[in-house]
Simulated assay, not measured.
Amino acid sequence: MDFLVNLDVDDLERAVAFYSAVFDLRVGRRLGDFAVELLGGPAPIYLLRKEAGTPASPTDDTPRRSYERHWTPLHLDFVVDDIEPAVARAIDHGARLEQPAQSHAWGRLALLADPFGHGFCLIEFLGRGYDELAR
């Protein structure tokens, strides 16, 4: 089974620039003027242009899309080889640092938000990674 990652954004070109620069992704296809496929990770990321203030669902007009920092129970984790330069690169391209890299038994974790309000984490695994937690 494959899965796809879709992110709503209000500025498609700005989102392409951010995700390409920060995560070394490349444009696979442009799907009209409303979507761009980014490749280079383990799953394609589709950036979907959705205007701010539009309903998030056709069956319920609340909540409406907002590109201020928002919370959702789903977020992306990006595994990096070296967390400090990855955090700096993300910030240089418009991400907001919400929690500097902290060390855990399994590795290091930094919390950020992209320019469109989506939270994401940068993870640098150390030792055996999450296996450090397994019994």
Rank of each mutant, 00 (worst) to 15 (best):
M1W: 07
D2L: 11
F3K: 05
F3I: 14
F3E: 08
V5S: 00
L7N: 02
L7A: 09
D8H: 08
D8W: 03
V9Q: 08
V9F: 06
D11N: 14
D11T: 07
L12H: 09
L12W: 10
E13K: 08
E13L: 13
R14A: 09
A15I: 14
A15W: 11
V16H: 03
A17V: 05
F18I: 02
S20L: 09
V22C: 00
V22E: 00
F23N: 02
D24K: 15
L25Y: 11
R26W: 04
G28E: 12
R29S: 13
D33F: 07
F34P: 00
E37H: 11
E37C: 09
L38N: 10
L38A: 07
G40I: 10
G41A: 15
G41M: 11
G41Q: 14
P42M: 14
A43E: 05
A43H: 15
P44Y: 11
P44D: 09
I45W: 06
I45K: 12
Y46L: 13
Y46G: 10
L47A: 08
L47Q: 07
L47H: 06
R49D: 06
E51R: 12
A52F: 08
G53K: 13
T54R: 13
T54K: 10
T54E: 08
P55K: 14
A56P: 06
A56Q: 13
S57Q: 07
P58K: 12
P58V: 15
P58S: 14
D60Q: 06
T62D: 10
R64E: 05
S66L: 07
R69T: 13
H70A: 04
H70T: 08
W71F: 14
T72K: 06
H75D: 06
L76N: 01
L76V: 13
L76K: 04
D77V: 04
F78D: 01
V79A: 11
D82T: 02
D82S: 02
I83E: 01
E84N: 01
E84K: 00
P85A: 02
A86V: 00
V87W: 01
A88H: 04
A88V: 01
R89W: 00
R89C: 00
I91S: 00
R96G: 05
Q99P: 07
P100I: 09
P100L: 13
Q102G: 15
S103A: 15
S103C: 10
H104N: 11
H104T: 12
H104V: 09
A105Y: 02
G107F: 11
G107C: 08
R108M: 12
L109F: 14
A110K: 05
L111M: 15
A113K: 13
D114C: 03
D114W: 02
D114P: 00
P115Q: 07
P115I: 08
F116Y: 14
H118N: 04
H118R: 04
G119C: 02
L122N: 01
E124I: 12
E124F: 12
E124Q: 15
F125H: 15
F125K: 07
L126G: 10
G129T: 00
G129I: 00
G129E: 06
Y130P: 01
D131I: 01
E132M: 10
E132F: 12
L133R: 08
R135E: 06
R135P: 14
